[in-house]
Design a binder for these strands. Structure first.
Lengths: 181, 181
DNA sequence: TTTAACATGTAATACGTTACATGATTAC
DNA sequence: GTAATCATGTAACGTATTACATGTTAAA
């Protein structure tokens, strides 16, 4: 396996969460990891293929009557080991999010204040939507998976999303005030 | 200019801030935009070249005695117009930051609690460094550029960084407590 | 009847980093 | 003498998205 493509580890890790097809991995990512990781099918299927080639996963084709054929992937013991090795590698750098709103704000002296207020309003609205989405997922996990070993960790990642999103919402308000006063 | 590459607009925008060489644009990004946008030389120089080709910037070569030749770029009126058009285009999607720490945390049932606490500690430490960096930049802008038209907006982007980083630091503490109790 | 959900995959393209290449001056 | 700063640029590579291609079933 190539050195440091975290997306590969994400896919490998998801094989330990009950997701065992490309399709269900994609769903899981969209539903539960989307606030800190996104992956498209264009990465998932080729990656699954190469994980099998390298011995970190195995695959079994299941025929289904009413549905297209399924490829069910299982993580191997070599795969578990690799996942654990990756987990223990220290994180060297904080992520830089590419924030289009902040980029536009940075250059906002070139546009009217009204437009800038609209920019902030739009951002706030989207943040509020995001906040509610996270809250929904958290409640879902708490009610349906609270006994699972993974649940504690999953909820922690959601709390991160909730807290930082909330801080960003507050910031929008104070930025708007700063512009209008 | 190709449709929606925001990095191109970032470079175009920086030409309005007194940065007029590839080198100084890179410095500006590393110093003042790095919390929401990063660009490498591999993007900057080709982009400047194509901005000139498309008429959004002009260039003038300056010979310097004691230094390598300089290419000084100026934004054209077509460039200003393009920048303004871009500013007015609504932001459609919130960014998803790829957060390696959260990804590892998500799969942390595969590692011991001690390791997970180390993961969180390491993250917190890096966040604190970042917080102090932002604070330093903010103070610098307030003392040296507070009269410029750009300053208000630049400080708002820094406040965003300070607020959300602070929320993330708080989260680290609460996550650690959750794991130890 | 048509849309959503299930299911897999590739090719073209876009975006971005890193390593390489060059070279002078100044400060330690 | 050697590291840092100034200064520009390309080629190779890595990463990721999008569009395309295919096909079934269940529900509205």
């Amino acid at each position: 396996m190539k050195k440091d493509n975290h997306t590969r580890y994400a896919i490998l890790g998801l094989l330990t969460t009950g997701c065992n097809t490309g399709y269900s991995i994609k769903q899981m990512i969209d539903n539960s990891l989307s606030h800190f990781w996104k992956i498209s099918y264009g990465q998932i299927y080729p990656t699954l293929k190469s994980l099998v080639e390298e011995g970190y996963a195995s695959v079994r084709i299941t025929e289904q009557e009413a549905r297209p054929d399924k490829k069910e992937y299982q993580i191997t013991s070599a795969g578990i080991q690799l996942l654990q090795d990756w987990l223990q590698m220290p994180v060297l750098e904080l992520p830089t999010e590419k924030n289009e709103t902040l980029l536009k704000l940075f250059f906002s002296r070139h546009q009217g204040k009204v437009r800038t207020l609209e920019l902030l309003d739009n951002h706030k609205e989207k943040l509020e939507q995001r906040y509610n989405t996270y809250k929904g997922i958290k409640e879902m996990i708490e009610s349906r998976l609270s006994d699972g070993e993974d649940a504690v960790y999953w909820i922690m990642t959601l709390d991160y999303g909730l807290l930082t999103t909330n801080a960003a919402i507050d910031w929008c308000e104070s930025a708007k005030e700063k512009l209008t006063k």
